[in-house]
Amino acid sequence: MFNCGKIAIIGGGSWATAIAKIVVEKTHHIGWYIRRDDRIDEFRRLGHNPSYLMGVRFNVDEICFSSDINEIVEKYDTLVFVTPSPYLKNHLKKLKTNISNKFIVTAIKGIVPDENLVCSEYFHNVFDVPEENIACLGGPSHAEEVALERLSYLTVGCCDEEKAQAFTDILVNDYIKTKTSLDVVGIEYASVLKNVYAIASGICSGLKFGDNFQSVLISNAVQEMSRFLTAVHPIERCVYDSVYLGDLLVTAYSNFSRNRTFGTMIGKGYSVKSAQIEMEMIAEGYFGTKCMKEINRHMHVNMPILDAVYNILYERISPQIEIKLLTDSFR
């Protein structure tokens, strides 16, 4: 029977903090890599993350903090990566410790830039982690709601079902329900695409499109996602499961969604740079849009929503013009 052993969190943002809360409640000990020593000092002093989800209190005696990723990797068996995808490579460049024998869980909803790989592929191809030792964590799960202990449903994907189940056993509690899946790559790509579609939803909101059109946009987004997943990883799946459609809906509609917020600002006339500066948080869909566009140049899937968001963000085409063209293609 597989045992996750000692678990460490890699990353210091809001989703990392929410996952740390879930795990430490069950295990009463975690390692936690946070890159800045001043943040760690503040965390220890205050008993909460000084920058994210500050209402979540921790018993810091149950946490082994370190700003040295190698120290954490050496000491812990299961490594849960929760860094923004654009910064993953920079963190891993510091790595001198072999991770091929670790159980890697990626909770990163993004693609590794330049490589244009989902994170499971990156860990497998670059760090020789066997596929059976890589899992992904997906599902509709705003960190803010998890912090408030509102009922949430998470899916752990892994090609080794026993290992997936072992990690779900760590997560499950009164407010977290879990399931397992074999569709690691599909879950990861879906989690990237839903951010792109949330930006589209936000742009349309900023342009004052109403709920009627938003429903048409998202129904077309589901079909577009399904076409791409079938092309890139053709296995039997139900795209209406919570890890696909559910995650798309919450990201496209919720006020907690960074990507929707970013898109709304673009729709209202902000430039990309000014929207990023004002948000002060990463909207992963901005980076994911470019990566997905480059990937789809080889896949040739019909993806008009992705194309429209790319044209607005990277080609600087007017949102009004681009969305009008998009609306003409919908039925």
Rank of each mutant, 00 (worst) to 15 (best):
C4T: 11
K6P: 07
I9D: 00
I9F: 11
G13W: 08
A16L: 09
T17P: 05
I19E: 00
I22N: 01
V24Y: 08
K26Q: 05
I30E: 04
G31E: 07
Y33F: 13
I34L: 07
R35L: 09
R44G: 00
L53Q: 02
F58H: 00
V60I: 06
V60D: 01
D61I: 01
F65D: 02
S67E: 15
S67F: 15
D68M: 06
I69M: 01
N70G: 04
E71N: 12
I72K: 10
V73E: 00
E74F: 02
E74W: 00
P84A: 00
K93Q: 03
K93R: 03
K94M: 10
N98S: 13
A107E: 01
I108N: 07
I108L: 06
K109Q: 12
I111S: 01
E115L: 02
S120C: 09
E121G: 09
H124W: 01
N125V: 04
N125W: 01
V126A: 00
F127T: 05
P130A: 13
P130H: 09
N133D: 13
I134L: 06
C136K: 06
C136I: 06
A143T: 13
A143V: 09
A143D: 08
E145N: 13
V146T: 11
R150F: 15
S152T: 15
T155V: 14
C158S: 09
D160Q: 02
D174R: 04
Y175S: 14
Y175G: 09
K179F: 08
S181A: 10
L182R: 14
D183V: 03
V185H: 15
I187L: 15
S191M: 01
S191F: 01
V192Q: 06
L193E: 08
K194S: 10
K194Q: 10
V196T: 02
V196N: 01
C204S: 11
S205H: 03
F209Q: 10
D211R: 06
N212C: 09
Q214M: 10
Q214C: 03
V216E: 13
L217N: 03
I218A: 07
I218H: 08
I218V: 13
S219K: 11
S219V: 09
Q223T: 13
Q223C: 09
F228L: 14
F228T: 07
L229K: 02
L229V: 07
T230G: 03
T230R: 08
V232R: 11
E236K: 15
C238P: 05
C238F: 15
D241E: 15
Y244T: 11
Y244V: 09
D247R: 00
L248F: 08
T251F: 05
A252H: 03
Y253E: 06
M265F: 05
I266Q: 04
G267Q: 07
G267W: 05
S274M: 12
A275N: 01
A275L: 13
M279G: 03
E280L: 12
M281N: 12
A283M: 05
G288I: 02
T289E: 04
I295D: 05
I295E: 10
N296T: 14
N296K: 10
R297W: 06
R297F: 07
R297Q: 14
M299L: 15
N302Q: 05
N302P: 10
P304D: 02
I305P: 00
D307Q: 13
D307L: 04
V309N: 05
N311A: 08
I312M: 05
I312E: 02
L313G: 04
Y314E: 11
R316E: 11
R316K: 07
I317A: 02
P319K: 11
Q320H: 15
I323K: 08
S329M: 13
F330R: 09
